[in-house]
Design a binder for these strands. Structure first.
Length: 271
DNA sequence: AAGTGGACCTGCTAGC
DNA sequence: TGCTAGCAGGTCCACT
């Protein structure tokens, strides 16, 4: 589910409310992708600091370390003053004096990992190798073009990999390529400089618009207040196989690249 | 080294 | 109506 916009929308929906709250309890449910890696008692009594985002990860700072969280494919976080009894998919609760931060994740590809610092292992190891942030000023056509030139995979795979630029997952990679008029099958190293310029702009604009719309709710994404996103209603190609392109009426095609579905307009998007 | 495909886990939907 | 195959927003790892 959660690509950069969903993670950012989630962060914005609880960061201010949890900041300064003291941890009074921790509850762990079924195993997630990695073990928590800490004695839960050690967290009790610590104050929550800033919540920041790197790619699709959230870093929840505590006084003597922090929690690196990932929502996987089906995760969402809720923050409520009075948490309900945990359900079968509620796998982590951080109980504070101000409310409970809860990770709900049916598929359990998500993670909550304790780390002494964001730039120390294991957090640093998980964050190592991530590409530039799309809203960072260092991300532009020059950077994107240079990075794409070094790869021979399809441009769609290059974006999904997250080693060049983080944040665009399957939905937003498809949407950004549509906005830039680029066929997702085009080899990364064949993207011209002008097209890289357009793609960089498209990635940034697509992700920014998705954040404004509260992300995409395909099935179960909710922000920490429980609100659904609306970007899925705005998608031009994702999930629209067989339906007419909103720009030229050509039927949208669905293909499979690296075992992931790709949606594109065969007329608007060129090799 | 870079690229590809499988693995992780559960729930929902389309089709028979 | 009920079963089943196929599919889903991510990313790590083994293998070529």
């Amino acid at each position: 589910m959660p690509e950069l916009p969903e993670v950012e929308v989630t962060r914005l929906s609880f960061a201010d409310r949890i900041r300064g709250a003291r941890v009074t309890g921790v509850r762990v449910g079924k195993p997630l992708r990695w073990p928590l890696g800490a004695d839960v008692d050690d967290m009790i009594g610590q104050r929550v600091g800033e919540v920041s985002r790197r790619g699709k990860y959230l870093w929840l700072a505590l006084e003597r370390g922090g929690l690196l969280m990932h929502l996987g494919m089906s995760g969402s976080l809720s923050f409520a003053a009075h948490a309900a009894e945990p359900g079968p998919h509620d796998h982590f609760d951080l109980v504070t004096a101000r409310g409970t931060l809860r990770l709900t994740d049916p598929r359990r590809f998500g993670a909550v990992v304790w780390s002494r610092a964001a730039d120390a292992p294991p957090a640093a190891t998980l964050l190592a190798g991530l590409g530039v942030e799309p809203f960072d000023e260092r991300f532009d056509g020059t950077h994107l073009h240079a990075a794409l030139r070094r790869r021979r995979v399809s441009v769609k795979s290059a974006l999904l990999g997250g080693e060049i630029v983080v944040g665009a997952g399957n939905i937003y990679a498809c949407e950004a390529l549509f906005e830039a008029g680029i066929d997702p099958r085009t080899r990364s190293d064949r993207i011209s400089r002008p097209r890289a310029d357009r793609l960089a702009v498209a990635i940034r604009q697509t992700l920014a618009r998705a954040v404004e719309l509260g992300g995409s709710t395909l099935r179960n994404f909710r922000d920490a207040h429980g609100a659904a996103g609306a970007f899925q209603l705005d998608a031009k190609v994702y999930g629209r196989a067989g339906q007419p392109c909103l720009r030229c009426a050509t039927p949208i095609r669905r293909i499979v690249q690296n075992a992931r579905a790709t949606f594109f307009c065969p007329s608007c998007q060129k090799r």
